[in-house]
Design a protein around this nucleic acid. Sequence first.
DNA 1: GGAATTTGCTGGTATATGCCACTATATATG
DNA 2: CATATATAGTGGCATATACCAGCAAATTCC
Lengths: 164, 164
Amino acid sequence: MTGKNKQDKQGQIEDGIWLHCSNSAVRRASRQLGQLYEDAMGDTGLKGTQFSLMSQIAGSDEPTLKNLADAMVMDLSALGHTLKPLIRDGLVELVPDAQDRRAKRVRLTDTGAATQLDLTTRWQVAQDRFDKAFGKDKSEELRRTLAFISSGEFAKAFNGNEDA
Amino acid sequence: MTGKNKQDKQGQIEDGIWLHCSNSAVRRASRQLGQLYEDAMGDTGLKGTQFSLMSQIAGSDEPTLKNLADAMVMDLSALGHTLKPLIRDGLVELVPDAQDRRAKRVRLTDTGAATQLDLTTRWQVAQDRFDKAFGKDKSEELRRTLAFISSGEFAKAFNGNEDA
DNA sequence: GGAATTTGCTGGTATATGCCACTATATATG
DNA sequence: CATATATAGTGGCATATACCAGCAAATTCC
């Protein structure tokens, strides 16, 4: 029962779970893009994820942790943990909300904002490479597709639309 | 400069880095699908990633760690770490290669093979839901697209095709 | 207004994943 | 053959990400 995968002359495996499982396919692609973008961003010491997070913060109006977690489709506690290094390094700060004393709002420090701008320049290089390699129109369409898959609407459809 | 995101009536953020950055978009979708598939797989105590890995092992001919890492587009040491819980729980085992004493081959134990079959049944439910929610044809096309993005060919194109 | 419920966050624990340094083996080179 | 280099894995460390239990503040319900 073993040994079902065809391999080409270079020994590359040509079939795999990623051709049958959308979850595996997306995770595999995220590992690849993680590598490619990280390489292109280079020496700043910051990760692609940290850039994503800081950019989302920069583009939002001092979101609460919950707001940000929802937007990133991320578990709230995972977000908290992921922000810790950024807070420790003085790039991000949490300020208590004036109205709701449970909530904390996230914002970039001055250093954080400057760093985010710098990262954006470097990131644009990577994104341009992606667009060139993949096709600019297809690239945008892919991002829209992935945003749909990431939406609550899609989650509802996936789970059978119990309410509708 | 703060406060650029439009929000709809439910306070949902409508713009975000994921509409501009393919890397962020893919990672965000992988978090969403991670959730959806995990929910559908349920109580087995195993993660989607572990299912992917075990399925890839099941469909290969006792790959070496390197083979498997390449196929999964995963760092070799990351693969080693990820396999540890599966080895600890007796689902996977590593056997030294007869020819190359550096290499170790990965295979499922009997328990592992049985578990993988069981997981496949559960996984199919999730994949069917995905296909239904997203469209079966589009689903397959998406997986092929993501496989292309995950390929060495794409990495080369991304990095400017220095050799060609 | 006080109890019950919901909501926002934190801390602990576990897996996922990558980089680097190191070891051992294999291969190439003079 | 001896050395130089390349390859396969391991272990340590750091971040990414999720679940759960717990806490405190807000909201709902009687």
